[in-house]
Nucleic acid binder design. Structure first.
Length: 497
RNA sequence: GGUCCUGUGGCCGAGUGGCUAGGCAAGGCUCUGCAAAAGCCUCUACAGCGGUUCGAAUCCGCUCGGGACCUCCA
C-alpha cells in the first residue's frame, strides 16, 4: 500500500515517492516566538507530527526540520522599522533574545504536552543570518533582486516572466499588481508585488545584523529558503505549513529557492486548514485566540472547563487536516468523553490474553468484520492521512472489545490471531502513529496498588451485602475525582474524572 | 474588487455517483443491591432551485448564506 497525499502545488492527491529511496526530507514552518502559542498553532504541529510518525512507521528515515522564527519581521513593510519582537520587548522591558527564549521554552513545553516528537533539526533564524545573506547575494548576482537604501527586494516581475510565479497559491501577477490596497513604504520598491529579502534597520530597531547592504535584518521569507536549502538540499520531499502561509510566504520561498538553487525546491506541498471560532479564523488579527495555556487551564471566557492536551490532539485528529475545524467548548467536551471511552476500550484490549494458536472463530461474520475494520486503518492513513476515518473504525470496534471484556461476547467468537492483530494494530495506530497517550498522569504505580486494595475491600463488602461500606468507598472516591465502575462478572475498574 | 474554498441530522464532524462513517447529546431496553460504566435498539441528514444520469450529499449551472487569501498570520 502506498501513501497518497494531497499536493497543494498540483491540487491533487498524488502517490508519495521520496526523492531518495528510504529517506524523506520534510520542512515545516515553525512558530514565530514573539508571543504565546494558541490553539490554531497546535494544528499544523499535530498534523505534521502524525505525518512524521506515519512516515517513520512506513520505514522511512525522516529528516524533519522545523524552524523557530526568532528574528522578527516588520509588521508592515517600510513602516518605522519596528519588528514584532523588538516592539514587544520594549513593552515588557526585556532583551529581545530573552523574550524569544521565554516563548521558545513555552512552545517546547506545549509540544511536549501534545506528545509531539521533536523535529530532528530545529534551526533558528538568528542562527542562520549568514546563510540568509549568502542566499540574498546569490539572488542579486542572478539578477533577480535589487538594492535600494540598504534594503534588498526580490524582483517578482522578472521572475514571473521566466518562471511559474503564483502556481502554488493560484495567484496571477497582474491581479496582484492591481490590488488597490495602499501600504506605506511601497515607493521604495520597483513594483508593489516585490518582497523584501533584507530590510535596512532604523536606529531604534534592536535586532540588527551587519550585511553587505548595511545594518539590517532579513526579510520574512528568506529564512525558510535558507534553512531548508542548508539541511534538506536544493530539492526536498515535503514542505508543510498552514494554509494562510501559502501566499505570500510559500510562494516567495519557491521563487527565492528556485533562483538560488536552480531547482523547484519542493516535491509535495502540504497545507493544513484553519481552526475557527464561530466560523472565523482564530488569529491574532481577529483577536479571538485561545492560548494553549488557557486551554490546558480552562481559564478563558469561552471555555467551560480545562482540556487535557490529549483531548485537543484527539479533537484535531477527528477532522481531516484540510478541513476547517470549528472550535467550541461543547465540541471539546464531546471529544473528551469520546477519547476516554476509546482509551478505556484500548486498555481493556491490551489486558486481554490472545492465544495466537487458536486460529478458528465461532462467529465468522464478526471475525470478518473485525478484520476488515482493522485492515482499513492503514488504508485510511494512506489516503491523505484520513485520521477521522481511522478513529471512526476504532470506535466501531470498541463495542466488540467491551463485550468481550464483559463476557457478553465469548472471546472465541473471533480467532486468537485476530485478537492479537487487533491488540497490535490498536497500539501502533493509537500510540505510535496518532501519538495519543493516557490522560492519567504517570505515577510510580502506588496509586494503582492502593486502588486495587480499595477494590478488593469493596468486593468483600459487596459479597457480604455490606452496602454501607461499598457505597462509602465508591462515594468518597468520587469526591476525590476517581470514578469506580462495577463491571460484569463482579469485576471493577476505575478512572480519573 | 480579484482568486479560491465551503454550506451535511439537536451539536461536532467523515464522505472518492449507487453499499445507512463516527463521536457527543436525546429516548427506550438489558445488565445491576443502588448508581455509574458497558451492551443492544431508535433518531436516515445532506442550503434552495434547475440540469446531467438508470441513479447525486457527491458532477454542472444559477440563487442565497459562511469563510480564507490578496497585509503580519499556523
Amino acid at each position: 500500500m502506498s501513501l497518497k497525499i494531497y499536493n497543494s502545488y498540483t491540487r491533487q492527491k498524488e502517490v508519495f515517492e521520496s526523492i531518495t529511496p528510504g529517506h524523506v526530507g520534510m520542512y515545516v514552518c515553525g512558530p514565530t516566538v514573539s508571543g504565546e502559542s494558541h490553539l490554531g498553532h497546535a494544528r499544523p504541529y499535530i498534523t505534521f507530527d502524525v505525518l512524521y510518525r506515519y512516515l517513520t512507521h512506513k520505514g522511512y528515515k525522516v529528516r524533519y526540520v522545523r524552524n523557530i522564527t526568532d528574528a522578527g519581521h516588520f509588521e508592515e513593510e517600510g513602516r518605522a522599522a519596528e519588528d514584532k519582537v523588538s516592539k514587544k520587548a520594549l513593552l515588557e522591558k526585556l532583551e529581545p533574545m530573552e523574550l524569544v527564549q521565554k516563548y521558545t521554552n513555552l512552545y517546547h513545553w506545549a509540544m511536549k504536552q501534545f506528545n509531539c516528537i521533536d523535529p530532528t533539526i530545529e534551526p533558528t533564524a538568528t542562527g542562520h543570518i549568514v546563510e540568509q545573506i549568502n542566499m540574498i547575494e546569490k539572488i542579486i548576482q542572478a539578477g533577480y533582486a535589487y538594492e535600494i537604501n540598504g534594503s534588498v527586494y526580490f524582483d517578482v516581475k522578472k521572475y514571473a516572466a521566466n518562471y511559474d510565479y503564483g502556481k502554488l497559491s493560484g495567484r496571477i501577477l497582474d491581479d496582484l499588481l492591481e490590488t488597490t490596497r495602499e501600504l506605506d513604504g511601497q515607493e521604495e520598491k520597483k513594483d508593489r508585488a516585490d518582497f523584501a529579502l533584507w530590510k535596512n534597520a532604523a536606529p531604534e530597531h534592536i535586532m540588527r545584523w551587519n550585511s553587505p547592504w548595511g545594518e539590517g535584518f532579513p526579510g520574512w521569507h528568506i529564512e525558510c529558503s535558507a534553512m531548508a536549502t542548508k539541511y534538506l538540499g536544493a530539492e526536498f520531499d515535503i514542505h508543510g505549513g498552514g494554509m494562510d502561509l501559502q501566499f505570500p510566504h510559500h510562494e516567495s520561498e519557491i521563487a527565492q529557492s528556485t533562483i538560488c538553487n536552480h531547482h523547484n525546491p519542493v516535491r509535495y506541498w502540504m497545507h493544513n486548514n484553519m481552526i475557527t471560532i464561530n466560523g472565523k479564523k482564530m488569529g491574532k488579527s481577529y483577536n479571538n485566540v485561545i492560548k494553549l495555556t488557557e486551554m490546558f487551564s480552562g481559564n478563558h471566557p469561552l471555555l467551560t472547563q480545562a482540556f487535557h492536551p490529549m483531548v485537543i490532539r484527539f479533537f484535531i485528529l477527528q477532522s481531516h487536516y484540510r478541513s476547517t475545524l470549528d472550535f467550541g467548548s461543547t465540541a471539546l467536551e464531546a471529544s473528551e468523553k469520546a477519547l476516554k471511552r476509546l482509551w478505556e476500550a484500548y486498555e481493556a484490549l491490551q489486558k486481554m490474553e490472545a492465544d495466537s494458536t487458536r486460529l478458528t472463530a465461532t462467529d465468522i461474520e464478526l471475525e470478518a468484520k473485525v478484520l476488515q475494520l482493522l485492515n482499513e486503518l492503514e488504508e485510511f492513513m494512506d489516503d491523505d492521512l484520513s485520521t477521522a476515518k481511522v478513529l471512526a473504525n476504532m470506535f466501531e470496534l470498541a463495542p466488540t472489545i467491551n463485550s468481550i471484556k464483559d463476557g457478553i461476547i465469548n472471546v472465541t467468537a473471533i480467532s486468537g490471531t485476530t485478537l492479537q492483530l487487533m491488540k497490535d494494530r490498536f497500539k501502533v495506530i493509537l500510540e505510535d502513529i496518532l501519538g495519543l497517550t493516557s490522560m492519567n498522569s504517570q505515577d510510580d504505580g502506588s496509586l494503582e496498588r492502593v486502588m486495587q486494595l480499595l477494590i478488593d475491600i469493596r468486593k468483600e463488602a459487596k459479597s457480604k451485602k455490606d452496602f454501607a461500606t461499598s457505597d462509602k468507598i465508591r462515594n468518597q472516591l468520587a469526591e476525590m475525582g476517581i470514578l469506580l465502575k462495577d463491571e460484569k462478572a463482579g469485576e471493577m475498574s476505575w478512572t480519573k474524572l
